[in-house]
Amino acid sequence: MKNRLYKFTYCLLALCTLQSCDKGLEELNINPDASSTVSPDFVFTKAQYDAVGNMITGLQGTMQYTTSYNDVASWGSKYIFNQGTAPYTVFSNAYPNEINEIGEVIRALEKDPLLVNKLAIAKIWRAYSFSKITDLYGDIPYKQAAQGYTQSIFKPTYDAQKDIYADILSELEKAIALFDATKSTFGAADLIYGGDITKWKKFAYSLMLRMGMRMTKPDVALAETWVKKAIAGSLITEDADIAKIVYLSSGQVINQNPLAYWMLNSDYLKADGVSNPEGGKYHETFINYLKKTNDPRLPVLSVVYVGGNPVRTLAFRKECLLRFPIPNHLILSPTQNPIRTQF
């Protein structure tokens, strides 16, 4: 009887091991909604959107361009401690997004010598993305950055800003040297220049010029060398060369101008000139400064609503702006204030 039990147990075990208990398990663990291979063009486009869109939102409040009668939105002008994360989000967003993405693009493109132009453009874009972060924050992780997957580096060390600028400069030089007009390049996936090698060279030299000028304080001799190199190359000199992304006016959020989208969908959502959920309006300090310097942009900055309809006469806008800026001590919602910031 006991034998039978053992036989049975053995059978059970044998059944399982022979059939292999992990059969089919690996196949089951494949995400049906993701791809195991990278499409460098698509990731590159994402990295362009991300690097350009990564900016300090709410800056107009921090810089006291705008203020509000309420406490939360007016922290810039009423000296109330900011409870938001705005000061550091550019830093913490950059690495998991544009920096890691462009790194993945480079990792994929490096394998194929036919794709050197794409590789060069990607390297220039990485240099630009890093330049934005170090400009904002100074010393940042650079050499070891975004190597969590490739090198298992989970806590990268910081590099000195001058070393970062120096490396960006040499990276730009190397990238420019990679260009080969006989090989293929990005098409529409490059939102800025559509893969135009000449324009990317201009962009790279212009960035070299900017980085070179950044070096004037730590190392003026080195700065001079790079600035001269940049000028000897080809710089952006005309409107057609301007690096810009043309956004869509509707559709998915990522395809729309991020600054405008953010404002138009938060405080300036209700386009009637009177009501904004957070009460944000132009701040008198800012308007008075523009007035004092007789700044020609003064009337262009705003939309003025009368009876809920926008009025586009510049003189009228200017007149309103000068009459209705919000003083920082305001604590009640103004009942009459037809001005709305313009984007």
């Binding site: 995400n31 195991s36 698509f42 997957y149």
Partner: peptide
């Protein structure tokens, strides 16, 4: 599931196609 291999996911776009490294399917990054 699906956290042992690096994968890439499409991001809904109204313009050019977009792709990103798949972050954890339920939480972020």
């Amino acid at each position: 599931p699906y956290v042992i291999n690096l994968t890439y996911s499409m991001i809904p776009s109204s313009g050019q196609p977009l792709q990103n490294v798949t972050t954890n399917v339920t939480t972020s990054s």
